[in-house]
């Protein structure tokens, strides 16, 4: 083979086609590169840890004065019916009705803000009426990087970035080629089918550093989100995760003939994991009975491993179970995708 042999070989050429098609689709580049940043910024601000979480409440005129000195509360003075209406509308967390001698708290006890507001309001009213606390307490507040919401969020966003880009990118590209009868044309040549599918995996691996480094660097620079564990483990988890979701992308695109059909299948593959795999809130919130299923999902494994490495300083040995789950999905999805693939 000549010096340029590897570049004119089929796997290199097919991969070049993937890269060129992607780079020449500005929208695709936007979603892959900038969307995770926007999401991090947006959610980072929306759920930022405010120094003083101010809770909005309403109080009737007879009791409002006692509450207004409390720094943690934003008190509106309203008549009883309007205060309770505001509570029903979700404008306030607590409605306080009554006067100095007799107070009724209206709130939703399933709402954390409501319960907190009730406790603060109760303390303020009791103290205003002359209660003294028998035990002296002091608060020492710590806000360490690693325990804030944004720290929880960044590994989750890296995980959904790897998943969504792979499943959407491969699913659409494969089905579009099938719709154009291009796949049929390609298999009319001596092209190797494994190399055809392999070029998709290589393409995703080329984009992987961009997908991981951008949110990681942004999280680190803008919010100080740490990476405490092993970089090698982080790289390996991302690598296996990317291959796993590429294989799932191939499986998702293996049969469909139209973009509409594959969109439905993609949503089926992606949406449940967006919700249950602990991207935005801990998957522990789902019932115990569902936990084994949730733990077995590839996105859960990927995100759990990323969080363990970034936040808890885990090494390679600590994420063995997650790597095994991702590897299992990779093998099953790739074999099934290859077997089911509609080559015309």
């Amino acid at each position: 083979m000549s010096k340029q042999g590897w570049l004119s070989g089929p796997l290199a050429q097919l991969t070049l086609v993937r890269v060129r098609e992607f780079m020449r689709e500005p929208e695709a580049v936007f979603w892959a590169v900038f969307f995770p940043i926007l999401l991090t910024v947006g959610l980072g601000f929306a759920f930022r840890d405010r120094p003083d979480p101010i809770l909005k409440i309403a109080a009737t005129p007879g009791i409002a004065a006692a509450l207004k000195s409390e720094a943690g509360l934003d008190v509106r003075e309203l008549p009883e019916d309007q205060a309770r209406l505001a509570l029903r509308n979700g404008d306030i967390a607590l409605a306080v009705v009554g006067d100095a001698g007799n107070v009724v708290f209206y709130y939703d006890d399933t709402n954390t803000e409501g319960r907190t507001a009730r406790a603060i309001a109760d303390r303020a009213i009791q103290r205003a009426a002359g209660r003294t606390d028998p035990v002296a307490v002091a608060d020492r507040v710590t806000r360490e990087p690693g325990s804030r919401y944004v720290d929880f969020l960044v590994p989750g966003l890296i995980g959904i970035g790897i998943m969504s880009n792979a499943v959407w990118g491969l699913g659409f590209s494969i089905v579009d080629s099938r719709r154009r009868k291009l796949i049929k044309r390609m298999v009319a040549t001596p092209m190797s089918r494994v190399q055809y599918l392999g070029s998709y995996l290589v393409w995703r691996l080329i984009l992987l550093p961009v997908e991981v480094i951008i949110p990681l660097a942004f999280g680190g620079l803008a919010f100080g989100v740490p990476v405490r564990g092993s970089w090698i483990a982080l790289a390996l988890v991302c690598l296996i995760g990317s291959l796993c979701f590429s294989a799932i992308g191939i499986l998702v695109g293996s049969r469909a003939r139209t973009i509409e059909a594959v969109s439905g299948i993609m949503n089926l593959a992606i949406m449940p994991q967006w919700i249950v795999s602990g991207v935005f809130f801990s998957s522990q919130r789902f019932p115990d009975i569902a936990q084994p299923v949730i733990k077995a999902l590839p996105l859960t494994a990927l995100i759990d491993a990323l969080r363990a490495i970034q936040l808890r300083g885990a090494g390679l040995a600590d994420v063995g179970v997650e790597l095994a789950i991702l590897g299992g999905w990779l093998v099953v999805a790739f074999v099934a995708g290859l077997k089911l693939f509609r080559w015309r």
């Binding site: 086609v17 060129r20 098609e21 020449r24 080629s177 154009r180 009868k181 291009l182 044309r185 040549t189």
Partner: peptide
Amino acid sequence: IQLQDTQLSDKLSVTE
């Protein structure tokens, strides 16, 4: 082989 209804990729050049 030339097939009846193949649409080659619009985003690639002739050479590519």
